[in-house]
Amino acid sequence: MKGKIEIRVTVNGEEHHASVEPRLLLADFIRENLDLTGTHVGCEHGICGACTVLMNGDSVRACLTLAVQADGAEVETVESLGDSENLGSLQRAFREHHALQCGFCTPGMLMTATDMLRKYPLETEDEIRVGLSGNICRCTGYQHIVDAISAARDERNKK
Protein backbone atom coordinates (compact mmCIF):
# COMPACT_ATOMS: atom_id res chain seq x y z
CA MET A 1 0.00 0.00 0.00
CA LYS A 2 2.57 2.63 1.07
CA GLY A 3 -0.14 5.24 1.01
CA LYS A 4 0.05 8.91 1.70
CA ILE A 5 -1.13 10.40 4.96
CA GLU A 6 -3.04 13.60 5.54
CA ILE A 7 -1.32 15.99 7.91
CA ARG A 8 -2.06 19.39 9.34
CA VAL A 9 0.95 21.37 10.47
CA THR A 10 1.08 24.96 11.64
CA VAL A 11 4.29 26.55 10.46
CA ASN A 12 5.19 30.03 11.62
CA GLY A 13 1.58 30.58 12.55
CA GLU A 14 0.14 29.45 9.27
CA GLU A 15 -1.81 26.21 9.06
CA HIS A 16 -0.92 23.85 6.23
CA HIS A 17 -2.75 20.74 5.08
CA ALA A 18 -0.90 18.23 2.99
CA SER A 19 -0.93 14.64 1.90
CA VAL A 20 2.54 13.18 2.30
CA GLU A 21 4.41 9.92 2.13
CA PRO A 22 5.27 8.75 5.65
CA ARG A 23 8.94 8.71 4.69
CA LEU A 24 9.03 12.43 3.90
CA LEU A 25 11.42 14.14 6.29
CA LEU A 26 10.15 17.23 8.06
CA ALA A 27 13.12 19.15 6.64
CA ASP A 28 12.06 18.29 3.08
CA PHE A 29 8.41 19.04 3.84
CA ILE A 30 9.37 22.51 5.05
CA ARG A 31 11.71 23.19 2.16
CA GLU A 32 10.00 21.50 -0.76
CA ASN A 33 6.30 21.56 0.10
CA LEU A 34 6.20 24.91 1.89
CA ASP A 35 9.08 26.62 0.06
CA LEU A 36 10.59 27.74 3.34
CA THR A 37 14.19 27.29 2.28
CA GLY A 38 15.71 28.92 5.35
CA THR A 39 15.82 25.50 7.00
CA HIS A 40 18.99 23.94 5.64
CA VAL A 41 19.92 20.33 5.22
CA GLY A 42 23.54 19.62 6.05
CA CYS A 43 23.91 15.96 6.95
CA GLU A 44 20.59 14.10 7.24
CA HIS A 45 21.91 12.12 10.17
CA GLY A 46 21.50 14.47 13.06
CA ILE A 47 25.07 15.65 13.56
CA CYS A 48 25.36 19.07 11.96
CA GLY A 49 22.26 20.80 13.31
CA ALA A 50 21.67 23.01 10.26
CA CYS A 51 18.06 21.82 9.96
CA THR A 52 17.11 22.60 13.56
CA VAL A 53 13.58 24.00 13.92
CA LEU A 54 11.23 24.38 16.86
CA MET A 55 8.39 21.91 17.20
CA ASN A 56 5.86 22.82 19.85
CA GLY A 57 8.48 25.17 21.21
CA ASP A 58 11.33 22.65 21.47
CA SER A 59 14.30 22.56 19.12
CA VAL A 60 14.37 19.40 17.01
CA ARG A 61 16.32 18.10 14.06
CA ALA A 62 14.04 18.41 11.05
CA CYS A 63 16.11 15.71 9.33
CA LEU A 64 15.40 13.23 12.14
CA THR A 65 11.69 13.96 12.28
CA LEU A 66 9.17 12.62 9.81
CA ALA A 67 6.71 15.13 8.46
CA VAL A 68 3.89 12.85 9.61
CA GLN A 69 5.22 13.17 13.15
CA ALA A 70 4.61 16.90 12.97
CA ASP A 71 0.90 16.35 12.35
CA GLY A 72 -0.98 18.66 14.66
CA ALA A 73 2.20 20.40 15.77
CA GLU A 74 3.30 24.01 15.73
CA VAL A 75 6.58 24.38 13.88
CA GLU A 76 8.74 27.49 13.89
CA THR A 77 11.53 28.00 11.39
CA VAL A 78 14.17 30.68 11.02
CA GLU A 79 11.70 32.68 8.94
CA SER A 80 9.66 33.22 12.11
CA LEU A 81 12.43 35.22 13.79
CA GLY A 82 12.26 38.19 11.47
CA ASP A 83 12.82 39.00 7.82
CA SER A 84 15.67 40.87 6.21
CA GLU A 85 13.82 44.17 6.52
CA ASN A 86 13.08 43.63 10.15
CA LEU A 87 15.51 41.34 11.91
CA GLY A 88 14.66 39.97 15.33
CA SER A 89 16.89 40.68 18.32
CA LEU A 90 18.82 37.40 18.14
CA GLN A 91 19.39 37.87 14.41
CA ARG A 92 20.63 41.40 15.09
CA ALA A 93 23.03 40.10 17.74
CA PHE A 94 24.41 37.63 15.21
CA ARG A 95 24.90 40.41 12.70
CA GLU A 96 26.53 42.80 15.12
CA HIS A 97 28.98 40.16 16.34
CA HIS A 98 29.75 38.73 12.90
CA ALA A 99 28.44 35.36 14.05
CA LEU A 100 27.97 34.07 10.53
CA GLN A 101 30.07 33.77 7.43
CA CYS A 102 28.61 31.51 4.77
CA GLY A 103 25.27 31.47 6.57
CA PHE A 104 24.53 27.83 5.97
CA CYS A 105 24.62 26.71 9.60
CA THR A 106 23.05 29.97 10.75
CA PRO A 107 19.34 29.06 10.71
CA GLY A 108 20.07 26.00 12.85
CA MET A 109 22.28 28.05 15.16
CA LEU A 110 19.54 30.63 15.59
CA MET A 111 16.84 28.08 16.36
CA THR A 112 19.12 26.21 18.77
CA ALA A 113 20.07 29.46 20.46
CA THR A 114 16.40 30.40 20.76
CA ASP A 115 15.68 27.18 22.65
CA MET A 116 18.87 27.44 24.76
CA LEU A 117 18.03 30.98 25.77
CA ARG A 118 14.61 29.80 26.96
CA LYS A 119 15.83 26.76 28.84
CA TYR A 120 19.23 27.50 30.32
CA PRO A 121 20.78 30.31 32.35
CA LEU A 122 23.87 30.29 30.07
CA GLU A 123 25.86 31.99 32.77
CA THR A 124 29.26 31.05 31.42
CA GLU A 125 30.93 30.89 28.05
CA ASP A 126 31.46 27.17 28.62
CA GLU A 127 27.75 26.65 29.09
CA ILE A 128 27.05 28.43 25.81
CA ARG A 129 29.66 26.35 24.03
CA VAL A 130 28.19 23.12 25.37
CA GLY A 131 24.76 24.29 24.25
CA LEU A 132 26.08 24.90 20.73
CA SER A 133 27.98 21.64 20.49
CA GLY A 134 25.27 19.98 18.44
CA ASN A 135 25.52 22.59 15.71
CA ILE A 136 28.55 22.48 13.48
CA CYS A 137 29.88 25.71 12.01
CA ARG A 138 32.83 25.40 9.71
CA CYS A 139 33.47 29.11 9.06
CA THR A 140 33.49 31.14 12.24
CA GLY A 141 35.47 29.08 14.73
CA TYR A 142 32.40 29.65 16.94
CA GLN A 143 33.89 32.56 18.85
CA HIS A 144 31.65 35.24 17.38
CA ILE A 145 28.61 33.00 17.74
CA VAL A 146 29.40 32.62 21.43
CA ASP A 147 29.75 36.41 21.65
CA ALA A 148 26.38 36.94 19.95
CA ILE A 149 24.61 34.53 22.26
CA SER A 150 26.28 36.08 25.31
CA ALA A 151 24.88 39.41 24.16
CA ALA A 152 21.44 37.88 23.61
CA ARG A 153 21.61 36.36 27.09
CA ASP A 154 22.42 39.75 28.62
CA GLU A 155 19.51 41.23 26.73
CA ARG A 156 17.25 38.44 28.00
CA ASN A 157 18.42 38.88 31.58
CA LYS A 158 17.54 42.57 31.50
CA LYS A 159 13.91 41.73 30.87
Binding site: T37, G82, S84, L87, H98, C102, T106, P107
Partner: peptide, 21 residues
Protein backbone atom coordinates in the same frame (compact mmCIF):
# COMPACT_ATOMS: atom_id res chain seq x y z
CA UNK B 1 31.24 47.49 8.88
CA UNK B 2 28.44 45.00 9.46
CA UNK B 3 27.94 42.74 6.50
CA UNK B 4 25.40 43.42 3.81
CA UNK B 5 25.01 39.67 3.22
CA UNK B 6 23.74 39.13 6.72
CA UNK B 7 20.09 40.24 6.68
CA UNK B 8 19.15 37.76 3.99
CA UNK B 9 21.27 34.94 5.40
CA UNK B 10 19.92 35.48 8.92
CA UNK B 11 16.32 35.35 7.85
CA UNK B 12 16.31 32.36 5.54
CA UNK B 13 16.12 34.61 2.49
CA UNK B 14 19.48 33.57 1.05
CA UNK B 15 19.56 31.77 -2.24
CA UNK B 16 21.68 28.64 -2.16
CA UNK B 17 21.77 26.19 -5.05
CA UNK B 18 19.70 23.65 -3.11
CA UNK B 19 16.96 26.31 -2.79
CA UNK B 20 16.50 26.63 -6.54
CA UNK B 21 13.25 25.34 -8.00
Amino acid sequence: VTRREDPRLLSGEGNYVADIK
